[in-house]
Every structure is written in C-alpha cells, then in structure tokens.
Nucleic acid binder design. Structure first.
Length: 548
RNA sequence: GGCCCCAUCGUCUAGGUAGGUCUAGGACACCGGGUUUUCAACCCGGCAACAGGGGUUCGAAUCCCCUUGGGGCUACCA
C-alpha cells in the first residue's frame, strides 16, 4: 500500500515547483490506489502566513489534486499541522537525549558564525564540534534561566558511510564525516524540518517520498535519524530534478520581484515617488528594492507592475489561473516536466497521466520551465476540453479577474467560447470580447487603429454606408450581417477586410476582436449603430482636412 | 571553498538499465509557404543535437575515466 505525501511550508501561494511535487506524489498514490497526505510544515513561526494554508489548499483544489488525509479532512494519523504536534516531537527528542543520541547546545549565533568562517577559511565543510560530554537537563535548565538559547543537536553516528537508495539517482553515498550534527530542536522549542519530517513520515506510515533534488543532501541525515529512532524500514526516496527558469537558477517566488526590478531599471524615466505611492511603500523601500537589499510584499509588487503596465512572469499557481490557463493544462505540463511517459505522447488527460506515471521515468537533468510550450499546451486543452468544463473554467476565470464579461449569461458565454476557437488563453477570449459588455461611451479608440483603418481608404465613408445598411436590416442575424458585408466588399471591389475593419474599430476601438459577424450580432443593432455614430462623430471632422 | 546531482536540437524530451534496427524520433519555438474579416487557430515544408577528450569493443548517443559546463545544498528556512 503506497502512502505518499505533499508537505509544503505555508509561506504563501503554491508555486509551480511545489505544484509539480504535489502532483507527482498524488499521481503515484492515485495510480496505485494508495493514500495521498497533505501535511503542513509550519514549524517556522517567523515565516508562516496565517492565510497561506488556505491558499495552498485552494490552489491544489483548483488543480484537481485531492488529499485523503490532511488538516481539513483529518485522518488516522493527525493532526496534519506540525505546529499541533509539538508533544509528539518532544517525546522523541527526549528519547534521543536520554539515549545520548542527541545533546543540548548553548551557542550564540555569533559563535556559530565564527566557527563557520573558520571552516570556510580552512577550505572545509563546517562540522559542528561535538562535545566529549553531553550537557544534561540541569545544564539546559540553568542556561535557560540565564537567558541563553538552548537547542538540541542530533549526534550523527560516524561509524559508516550513509547510502541513499534513490529511485531516480540510484545509489548516492555520503561520508558521515561530511554530515554535521544538525539541530533538531530550535531554541523556541519547535522542531526543525529535518526532525519533524522524519517523525511524521514514520508516524503517518509514508512509503514514498518524492521531493525536489534540493532535499537530497538532507536525506542522509534524515536516514540516520530514522535509524537512531528505531523506525525500521526506510521509506523509498525519489529526488526529482529541479525546475529552472529562463533567467537561470531555480524557478522560485523571487522570479516576480526580480523581473519587476529589472523592468524598472530598464526605464530610467520612471517617477519613483509615484511608484512608491502606487505600491503603498516608501521611497526608501523602493530604492532598497532596486539595490537588491529588500523585497516588498507581493501586493506591492503586483500593484507597481500593473501601474507600469508590466506583465510579470507567472510563478504561482494562481498567477497562471489569472492569466487564463486551464488546470488541465497545468497538470499535463507539470506532469511532463522532468518526466516522460515514453514515446511521442504529450497532450494527455489526468487519467492518462495517472495510468502512465512511472517513477523510474523521471528525468535526472534539470529542466527549464518553457512558457511557450505551456501556451501551446493551453491552446490544445482549450480546444479539447468538454464544453461544460470550459464554460466552468471561463466563469471561474472571469470572476477571479473581475471582468465585465462575468455579467453575461451562460448562453452568451458559451457563444463567446464557440466563436473564439483557437484562443490560446481564456484571457485572450476575455480581451477580445470585453467590448461587448461595457458601455458604448467607454470604448477607448486605439490611435493607430483609427489612423490605419478609419482615416485611410475611405474608412469613414465605408463605415457610414455600413451604418445605413445595418440600420435598414430587418432581421439582425449573423447571416444577414455577413451577407451584407460581403456584398458591400464585392460592390466596392475590395477585400472583406476593407469593410469589416472600419466596423470593427467602430464597435471595439481596436483592430483586434472576436469574429466580426458574431460580435455585431451579439452587440445588437441598437448598440452597434450607436457606436458607429459615436465613431463617425468623433473622427468625422478630422477626415475632412486629410482627404485630398 | 566543501559536499552532492546532472549533461541528446534554442527548449521539453524519445533512444541509454539488455552497445549494432539512430545517416538520432516527436513536440514547442524559430524560418519559409498556404489559408484567412482582425488577432489567433489551422495546413504544408524547412532549420536544428548526442559538451570536449581519452578509453573498452568488430561496433558507443548508449559502458568507464578525465576535463569543461550547469544546478543543488552548505541556517535555530523548509
């Protein structure tokens, strides 16, 4: 019976790297009919955001990743929040201390830093100097009353090299002399990740641990702990390749601030004071951010980016949601990043991915998160998901971005989805349809579009003709609109574009929109004529002089 | 600096664990052409890789070693 788990620390929204880890564990559990656990590693009081747990769970749900045991659903081996398992960890820590397998430490950060610097200077790895005699509980108590910080370190057995049997890497050997006695209990009484993780994986009967390669170096220590605690058979490990970004290095949450910082620097004319105001931070904070000293909070980053009209690269699952990607796309893409079902298959459903998932087929080399390919996947999934699913996703999306299109009923929304086949993202569909749902007076006319389409080639004259023909139309149907425009083009011996484009600009303000016949029909006769009137009035006088 | 991992088209990858069937396949991107009411989408065609050097072998993308290059970790973060 397979038991897999995803164990995020709740520091904010779920990012794609975390989502991939969760997905692989979930895929394995689903394929084997095993259990998938969601465990929250909230042992760092400083880093936890109270809302983060909910955000992570929302993101997983959006992806369709359901957990069998977790903070909200419970389970036989709860609680699933590490912060609620303090007594359990304390018990095991006491056991290790009693057995002389762990010991108290009283070092100050300064002392530790000095030791590390010394090691660095001597060109060797930092190894904590284990005391000959371990301090006892009384020493610890006294240190505490003196106000000194007390931590507990695990005495890593030095007898034999530690071999990690990794499903993707094979046998990886670590010399124990390279593994420093690490802290298992912090001075605030919380366990460290390396300790809590081992205890929980044992208690929750986890059989498979799939995680990022960044944890490979933690594994020998965790194995030693597992053994010292007498936990018996080790779980199976699989350390996945890391997902890297175009800018180099691990794809992380730093991506967005970094990208914004570069964008600001690339535009020296920016009013930094105004920027600070928009981001709701001080000018000093902006400068510090530009110097790489500090990083403002995400809402500030987003606000500043929006103000500057910069699109930041998506890194969190919600970012992709708000950019109009489908969960099916994300699951498919992430499942194939650093893994392959073999052969030429790429666009796959969750069922297919589950069936074909194979831990032994994980790639060893790091892979780059290719947004272009993701877009292609999204295009394909938008084309192939069922109408009902697409409609549901579209409604969720519109609601999330607070689009005026959200006011449309299901019928209109379905129509939009239908006429916009070939769209790459839901965002594109929204952008090309938005004009149908805003007031005629609020249409913004794109300067280039007006110049190119209306003020040239008799654009306005054509538009006036179109207006009259539409006004005379009794049945305002897609078919009639199309016939009218086509015959008008024929009459004038020009391409359809010459008559369709002026109309397009008149009703939506730009040269880009959903297909014109359907758009006009959806807008309705009254609105269409009104918009043409507005356009004619607005740009009509300008043409007089320009016509020669 | 130390330890660990990795290396096929620009990118994701197939092929590697059983060396010959690989003049290295697919997809994305890119380039050219077609289609077209805009943007897309779609159709056809093209470009493009076994990091380098040594071995082992009749034969190596595939096995071994070195070099180079990338990545990770090196916290009282996870």
């Amino acid at each position: 019976m397979v038991v897999a788990r995803f164990a995020p620390s709740p520091t904010g929204y779920l990012h794609v790297g975390g989502a991939r880890t969760a997905l692989f564990n979930w895929l394995l559990a689903r394929q084997t009919g095993g259990t998938f656990i969601l465990r929250i590693e909230d042992t760092d009081q400083k880093r936890n955001t109270p809302t983060a747990i909910g955000q992570v769970m929302d993101d997983l749900r959006w992806l369709g990743i359901q957990w069998d045991e977790g903070p909200d659903v419970g389970g036989p081996n709860g609680p699933y929040l590490q912060s609620q398992r303090r007594d359990i960890y304390d018990k095991y820590i006491k056991k290790l201390i009693d057995e002389k397998k762990a010991y108290y430490c009283f070092d100050t950060p300064e002392e530790l830093d000095a030791l590390r610097k010394e090691a660095q200077d001597q060109r060797r790895n930092f190894i904590y100097p284990r005391p000959k005699d371990f301090p006892d509980a009384k020493d610890a108590e006294q240190a505490r009353t003196e106000g000194r910080a007390v931590t507990v370190r695990f005495a890593v057995p030095q007898d034999k090299p530690i071999v990690v049997q990794d499903i993707v890497r094979g046998e990886v050997t670590f010399a124990t002399s390279e593994i420093s006695d690490f802290i298992i209990q912090k001075s605030d009484g919380f366990p460290t990740y390396n300790f809590a993780c081992v205890v929980d994986d044992y208690l929750m009967k986890v059989t498979h641990i799939i995680r990022g390669q960044e944890h490979l170096n933690n594994t020998p220590g965790q194995q030693a702990l597992w053994e010292a605690l007498g936990f018996g058979e080790l779980p199976k490990y699989a350390h996945m390749s890391v997902t890297v970004s175009e800018t180099g290095g691990k794809l992380s949450k730093r991506e967005r601030p970094k990208s914004l910082c570069e964008a600001i620097k690339a535009r020296p004319d920016i009013d930094l004071e105004k920027l600070a105001e928009v981001g709701n931070i001080t000018l000093e904070e902006v400068n510090s951010f530009l110097d790489g000293q500090t990083t403002p909070d995400m809402p500030s980053i987003d606000a500043m980016a929006e103000y500057l009209g910069i699109v930041l690269p998506e890194v969190n699952v919600v970012d992709f949601f708000k950019s109009g990607y489908l969960p099916e796309t994300m699951v498919n893409f992430l499942a194939l990043l650093g893994a392959s079902p073999g052969g030429d298959r790429e666009i796959m459903s969750v069922d297919e991915l589950t069936k074909s998932f194979d831990l032994s087929r994980l790639t060893k080399a790091n892979s780059l998160f290719d947004r272009g390919k993701l877009l292609a996947f999204n295009t394909e999934h938008i084309r192939t998901v069922s109408e009902e699913k697409l409609l549901r996703h579209f409604k969720d999306y519109l609601k999330a971005i607070e689009s005026p299109v959200a006011s449309a009923d299901d019928e209109a929304l379905s129509k939009l989805l239908e006429i916009n086949t070939g769209a790459r993202t839901l965002a594109q569909i929204e952008q090309k349809s938005k004009f149908l749902f805003i007031a005629s007076e609020e249409i913004e006319y794109d300067e280039k579009a007006v110049k190119k389409v209306l003020l040239k080639n008799d654009g306005l004259a054509v538009l006036a003709t179109v207006h009259d023909k539409l006004a005379a139309m009794e049945q305002f149907t897609v078919e009639n609109i199309e016939n009218m425009l086509r015959s008008l083009a024929e009459e004038r011996e020009v391409g359809l574009g010459k008559v369709a484009q002026p109309l397009r600009v008149a009703i939506c303000g730009t040269t880009i929109s959903a297909p014109i016949f359907d758009s006009v029909e959806m807008l309705g006769k009254e609105n269409t004529l009104a918009r043409i009137d507005i356009t004619l009035k607005k740009f009509g006088t300008e043409t007089q002089g320009e016509r020669s």
